[in-house]
Amino acid sequence: MTTTAVALEDTKVAFRLGDGRVYTAVEEAQLTVGQGEFVAIVGPTGCGKSTLLNVAAGLLKPAAGSVKVFDRPLASLNRDAGYLFQADALFPWKTAIDNVAIGLEIKGTPRPEALARAQKWLTSVGLGAFANRYPHMLSGGQRKRVALAQVLIRDPKILLMDEPFGPLDAQTRQVMGNLLLELWSADRKAVLFVTHDLEEAIALADRVVIMSAGPSSRIIGDWRVELARPRDIFEVRLDKEFHALHREIWSVLKDEVMKGYAQSTQAEAV
């Protein structure tokens, strides 16, 4: 793992507010994701972790610093990346199979071939029998599976995930986590996974990065997760090592969560 897939160098992200003030979301973030590495970013609500992900995707321009993708500076959208959104991002007017096939079709793959490959991907996320359903006919978990297939069919080198399983219930999240690990282990893409769930982060990732409470949040910790792979999310949580690491990271994260909470209640009071 010598090459870096994504490197954020002193990246600062700021927004101009409606009244002319400048709001700094993220201050000088320094983060690298190696090829084949699974990195999870954890932080309290509103710490700008999704913002950082959007910068890596090229959807947002940093106010200062640079973003490098495979050692090349990122000028516009990150074409090497697939993005799994937190909210529903499927095209509601397309069936499941059309939603998956579209990624190939826009690259000019002939439709029959795109459909055949989409069907394969739907099968590998466990939805082979749901090809002709529209998104509204699927459950939240099923929609996430379709979204995962939609992203993976393009075979991106980097996978950006913004609390992708956030809206799901606890059991479905674990099932989806295992599915993700299983698909990921096939070709080990570089993954940047944003979540507010520390357990999920440790269970999935090779590295866990902690961000401080916003505004002007920064990266305040970086832990390596040495748990053996392949992992099973249900079982890894019972591991002693898992608990030790969880306690260690939580001792840092806890303060930030309380800070973030205090700030958010203050903001509401104003």
Binding site: A57, Y83, F85, A87, G103, I106, K107, R154
Partner: peptide
């Protein structure tokens, strides 16, 4: 929807 639009962009449209 902003998300659907961003998704389209990220899929390379």
């Amino acid at each position: 929807s902003r998300t659907v639009l961003d998704n389209g962009r990220m899929l390379g449209m």
